[in-house]
Lab assay of single mutants.
Amino acid sequence: GATAVSEWTEYKTADGKTLYYNNRTLESTWEKPQELK
């Protein structure tokens, strides 16, 4: 079967924080998503 690919993209901001963006739900979060833990 196909492996579930994470929908989350990780961005590094200018101040060194990490922003997570979900390509499916168009949601963005500063918290690390469950799927990435």
Rank of each mutant, 00 (worst) to 15 (best):
G1Y: 14
G1K: 10
G1W: 12
G1Q: 14
A2Y: 12
A2P: 14
A2N: 12
A2W: 11
A2T: 13
T3Y: 07
T3E: 11
T3G: 13
T3R: 07
A4Q: 13
A4I: 13
A4N: 14
A4G: 13
A4T: 14
V5L: 13
V5S: 13
V5P: 12
V5W: 14
V5D: 11
V5K: 10
V5A: 14
S6N: 11
S6Y: 08
S6Q: 11
S6E: 09
E7S: 05
E7I: 07
E7F: 07
E7M: 05
E7P: 06
E7L: 06
E7T: 05
E7G: 05
W8N: 00
W8F: 01
W8S: 00
T9I: 14
T9D: 03
T9E: 09
T9P: 00
T9M: 11
Y11S: 04
Y11C: 15
K12I: 13
K12H: 10
K12Y: 10
K12E: 07
K12D: 03
K12W: 07
K12F: 08
K12V: 13
T13F: 14
T13Y: 11
T13S: 08
T13K: 03
T13A: 07
A14W: 07
A14T: 10
A14Q: 10
D15V: 03
D15T: 08
D15G: 08
D15K: 04
D15Y: 05
D15M: 05
G16P: 01
G16E: 01
G16S: 01
G16F: 00
G16I: 00
K17G: 04
K17I: 04
K17N: 06
K17Y: 07
T18R: 03
T18A: 03
T18Q: 03
T18F: 06
L19F: 15
L19P: 00
L19R: 08
L19I: 14
L19M: 13
Y20Q: 00
Y20M: 00
Y20K: 00
Y21T: 06
Y21N: 01
Y21V: 14
Y21M: 08
Y21E: 03
N22G: 01
N22M: 00
N22P: 01
N22H: 03
N23P: 05
N23L: 09
R24M: 10
R24L: 13
R24S: 07
T25L: 03
T25V: 02
T25Y: 03
L26W: 08
L26E: 11
L26S: 11
L26T: 08
E27P: 00
E27D: 04
E27V: 09
S28E: 09
S28V: 15
S28F: 15
S28L: 15
S28R: 09
S28D: 03
T29P: 01
T29F: 09
T29E: 02
T29G: 03
W30C: 11
W30E: 11
W30Q: 06
W30K: 05
E31A: 06
E31I: 13
E31T: 09
E31H: 07
E31R: 05
E31K: 05
E31G: 03
K32D: 04
K32Y: 04
K32H: 04
K32W: 03
K32V: 10
K32F: 04
K32G: 02
P33R: 00
P33M: 02
P33L: 02
P33N: 01
P33K: 02
P33G: 02
P33Y: 02
Q34A: 15
Q34H: 11
Q34L: 14
Q34E: 15
E35W: 05
E35V: 08
E35A: 13
E35S: 10
E35G: 09
L36H: 07
L36V: 06
L36C: 08
L36A: 05
K37W: 14
K37D: 14
K37S: 14
K37T: 12
K37E: 13
K37G: 14
